[in-house]
């Protein structure tokens, strides 16, 4: 099945991004660089997983719901990324050079 193959590829790619996000959180030197890794990699990862599932969705409404979930997570993580970075800065956490 072509669709199944495409879904599988998207899922694997999504997993790689989630793995990269976690590795970034573990390996990067300060809170700012860790935020970069987490926010960007996990959102692409979730986007790819949503795309993989959307290909298998039984109805258009389900596709829409999956996209809605992804958009909500985008809002939550960009907001939290900005708030955490901003609070770290105000608390005087100096960026790693």
């Amino acid at each position: 099945m072509l669709i199944d193959g495409l879904s599988l590829l998207l899922l694997i790619a999504g997993m790689i991004f989630f793995l990269a996000g976690t590795l970034g959180v573990l390996r990067f030197p300060d809170v700012y660089t860790r935020l970069h890794a987490l926010t960007k990699a996990d959102n692409v990862g979730l986007g790819l997983i949503v795309a993989a599932l959307a290909l298998q969705a039984p109805a258009w409404a389900v596709v829409g719901k999956l996209i809605l979930v992804w958009l909500l997570v985008l809002v939550a993580s960009t907001l939290s990324c900005h708030l955490v970075a901003r609070t770290a800065q105000r608390r005087g956490v100096t960026p790693w050079q």
């Binding site: 790689i16 991004f17 793995l19 990269a20 996000g21 590795l23 970034g24 390996r27 990067f28 030197p29 300060d30 700012y32 660089t33 970069h36 890794a37 960007k40 990699a41 959102n43 692409v44 990862g45 986007g47 960026p95 790693w96 050079q97």
Partner: peptide
Amino acid sequence: SLVGGVDVARRALSPARPLQPAV
């Protein structure tokens, strides 16, 4: 955002962990 994800994933997965942060 796709380019951003690929870029940061590459840095996180690379053994050298290339970073040159600035504000």
